[in-house]
Write a protein that binds this DNA or RNA. Structure first.
Lengths: 346, 346
DNA sequence: ACGATGACTGCAAGCGTTTCCACAGGTCAG
DNA sequence: CTGACCTGTGGAAACGCTTGCAGTCATCGT
């Protein structure tokens, strides 16, 4: 394996000049630069990542902490982050922590702290104050997506407001018997979102003077198949049925639609269903939903981070970019009305 | 930031002993070890990743190259790899190269070669000989999943044989008018799989003396929504309809079932559908399929790699584990018969 | 009682870059 | 013509660990 020394020898230059030439720094004559580049190419030289990181303090590596990689929202965010980072020449280190507290803890303690990351993106992770302090202590910028991260910058949508909007959409159509399919609290201790969306639902119901019936507040694990099972239970109850369901995610809305079909219920004629996300499958099911561009959120998070890092580098700030004041941005969303919602049956 | 020197001072030991104590090496007295650990904990010391990698030559980092993160197969593999790696204390660097040749090239050239990875897992990626040589040149073990990687170890399923099996399942039920929904070749230049599965289908048809009708050979992009659109086109043709469809993935099979429902076709009464994968949603749709445990394949790949790396380390092999002879394993699968296939309508 | 053995320990030499600093030579205003 | 300044360049000091090597000290067989 050729080292920078070999390149220097071959080019007839010093190590220092070669280093500057190859990394595009100033104060290198055009001639030397060409010489260095040619020699490097001929030897197939690639700088050692560790050596350069150790010497420069910059990693070109961003960590992404996710609770899952299977659910639409997370894989979409991942995609956005990944594309942005890759284009910028950054590596993406993925921490798919799942539901297991153990794994999460070891990630936070061992992995993230090892100074190998320039920045961290945490998705839908609710951290304790201690944990946030820990992260901030490594002096790396952090941004949270879709989860409250006190002290760090966040990108999020107005979950409670949007839930209200979705519920109001149903109410305005004339529905009064509305069920809510929320996230499974047991499975998601790190993930306050279900509660927030539920609160939005309840607020909207209350404002409209409508009852929130406990037996119509059901939950699932945010997957199509999980919601399908829960919705079957809801719709299969012998008693009166709701005329509309607001599901806390598109995947759960789709599960509900599938369950409704099983019972011979026509959507939207017999049952209106509204979701929330902007899942690609929404179109197939004619799903009315609130679009949130998860991919875009991921891309934005990555871009913000890169800017901060570049700014830090420009300021000669030792590579350890000082996090600017924590900002909290609300990502734009839109209500997309398709064919899964309509006025209630007479 | 506390360094190992600080820990040594605090513990009253030498740097060398602290290093050995903390990394669990032999020849350290119990007392010294405890001393070192206590001091490290008190100072919140975490060894610098780059420094230790530079000095030891080991990275504790495995690269995963994927064409997508959204499709079931890939996110499942990712999940398996991720969990195994995380548990072993390894980082996972994700290269989601997508369909873009440019990005793929830059990943191969710049990222993978920078000596920062102990090993590489490439999923469903067909590489040119040059590219494989490049990878092998960095002397890191590589394993390919679900794609031919001449010269490297691979984990795969018997795609052609299984396609045959799926097709035969339909034939044995009595179907003669069978359509095949394959992957979109244009979108998947790096991904020979669709062709292989298609060949298996054609071979089975030929063996049974059945015609392969070109207008029933349709393709989609391996997603539910893409297959839904393609299947609508197939089923909407004015002409004679097939009585069964073999879809090259479960997602595409599900898209087909959804399309069939739109046309008022009952599955399996009017149309039998068989898929291939073992998607979690299969159960909801009663989908007959061939289970391949993608998550398990990912986990196995990671485990194999870790073993190789450990063996290399044990052999004192400079950390750069010598890849053993390339092996090619076939991962077990099973035909799961549910309710989406039956005898053809009379 | 004595050399041999083995368990611990510390010194210091790397690992392969980046970057600070000093310096050479050339340019330019005064 | 000279001092101030700028552009290029190379020497060498970090960066923060791991590990080979040599040395200390206690243990043990004979």
């Amino acid at each position: 394996m050729a080292g920078i020394k070999d390149v220097a020898d071959r080019a007839g230059l010093s190590i220092a000049t070669v280093s500057r030439a190859l990394s595009g720094k100033a104060n290198v004559s055009a001639k030397s630069r060409k010489l260095a580049k040619t020699a490097a190419a001929e030897l197939g030289f690639v700088p050692s990542y560790h050596a350069s990181s150790l010497a420069s303090g910059r990693n070109h590596n961003v960590g992404l902490v996710l609770p899952s990689v299977h659910r639409w929202y997370f894989s979409s965010v991942l995609e956005g982050v990944s594309a942005t980072l890759l284009d910028a020449g950054y590596d993406l280190t993925l921490y798919n922590v799942g539901d297991q507290a153990v794994r999460r803890e070891s990630v936070l303690n061992d992995f993230l702290l090892r100074k190998r990351l320039d920045a961290v993106i945490a998705v839908a992770l609710v951290l304790t104050d201690d944990e946030i302090q820990q992260l901030l202590a490594i002096h790396r910028p952090i941004v949270g997506i879709g989860g409250a991260l006190a002290g760090a910058s966040t990108i999020r949508i107005n979950d409670s407001g949007l839930s209200r909007m979705a519920t109001n959409h149903l109410i305005q159509l004339g529905h009064t018997r509305i069920a809510h399919l929320t996230g499974d609290p047991a499975l998601n201790q790190d993930f306050k979102l279900p509660g927030i969306r539920q609160a939005g639902f309840e607020a909207a119901m209350k404002d409209a003077g409508l009852p929130v019936r406990p037996e119509w507040q059901i939950s699932a694990d945010f997957t199509i198949q999980g919601a399908y099972a829960s919705a079957r239970r809801l719709l299969g109850m012998g008693t009166e049925r709701p005329t509309a369901v607001f599901a806390a995610s598109d995947e759960m809305a789709i599960g509900t639609i599938l369950a409704a079909r099983d019972f011979g219920l026509r959507v939207p004629h017999d049952l209106s269903v509204i979701g929330m996300d902007g899942h690609e499958l929404g179109e197939v099911f004619g799903l009315t939903t609130i679009n949130q561009d998860a991919r875009g959120q991921g891309a934005l998070a990555a871009r913000l981070l890169l800017e901060t890092l570049d700014a830090g580098a420009a300021a000669g700030n030792d590579g350890a970019a000082t996090p600017r004041g924590a900002t909290d941005r609300e990502y734009p969303t839109e209500l997309v009305i398709r064919t899964s919602t309509a006025v209630p049956p007479a």
